[in-house]
């Protein structure tokens, strides 16, 4: 576990020195805050939490995915991963270090979203828990893309369209029944359902998100067996 801890600390230090990733982390809660303060709280016809839920769902679909795939792809491209493996770091320790930090950091941002939205009590806990679960799924998907990509450019080319598709599908689903039916199987749609409607039944969306995580874990195992972490 000490290797996972060392990689967790590395990822923490590196994230705060990586402007592109910091922008990814800050932009969604910042937009949610600005829109809530300037639009939702001014216009009484708009629910106060509408921008928070919208940007939170986008954040979960995009940020953990992009952070994970770019971290893994960069380590592969710069051959840093080679030195970690040579130092005896096991693949699961590496992925636990990277993924653990990203999920934890996204959990912190989820708390910020909850505070901006003004949620309290059970609603607050449910809101944050759903975002954390969604972040786990996105991190796994990012790890799959990072493993399958040769370098950062390839990871971005593959990761960004997938992230955008997952982040924006729930929004498009509002206007099209067919897309809604397709989007229904993805975790981002279920995250969107749960964060937008605090009175919605939890069982089905929760089941679909967990199912997504299980499927992504299986796909991750297959991708790892095929490509591994070797540069």
């Amino acid at each position: 576990m000490r290797s996972a801890k060392a990689i967790f600390i590395k990822q923490l230090q590196d994230t705060f020195k990586n402007r592109l990733i910091l922008i990814q982390l800050i932009i969604f809660p910042m937009m949610a805050f600005i829109m809530t303060e300037l639009v939702a709280k001014v216009d009484e016809t708009i629910p106060n939490s509408i921008f928070v839920t919208m940007f939170a769902a986008m954040f979960v679909g995009m940020t953990p995915l992009v952070m994970t795939n770019s971290a893994i792809a960069e380590d592969r491209e710069h051959k840093s991963l080679r030195f970690l493996v040579m130092a005896g770091v096991k693949p699961y320790e590496y992925l636990l270090g990277i993924g653990g930090f990203i999920v934890l950091f996204c959990s912190f941002v989820s708390l910020v979203f909850g505070l901006i939205g003004g949620f309290t009590g059970v609603v607050f806990v449910k809101f944050v828990s759903v975002l954390v679960l969604g972040s786990v799924a996105s991190t796994l998907l990012g790890a799959i893309i990072g493993i399958l990509s040769k370098n950062q450019q390839a990871a971005a080319a593959l990761g960004m369209p997938i992230a955008m598709l997952l982040a924006f599908a729930p929004m498009i689903a509002n206007f099209n029944n067919t897309i809604e039916k397709i989007a229904d199987i993805f975790y981002t749609q279920q995250v969107n359902v749960l964060v937008n409607d605090s009175s919605a039944s939890v069982t089905r969306p929760f089941f679909i998100i967990v199912l997504n995580i299980i499927v992504l874990l299986i796909l991750f195992t297959l991708a790892y067996k095929k490509k591994g972490l070797k540069s």
Binding site: A6, I7, I9, K10, K79, S80, R82, F83, A87, G88
Partner: peptide
């Protein structure tokens, strides 16, 4: 091991780079 490609973490400083490996070892 020291190879032709150094694999250093370019945004981190010298000490942070070594501390990662101190943690691993």
């Amino acid at each position: 091991l020291m190879l032709d490609e150094d694999g250093l973490y370019v945004r981190l400083n010298c000490l942070e780079n070594l501390n990662i490996f101190a943690g691993i070892y």
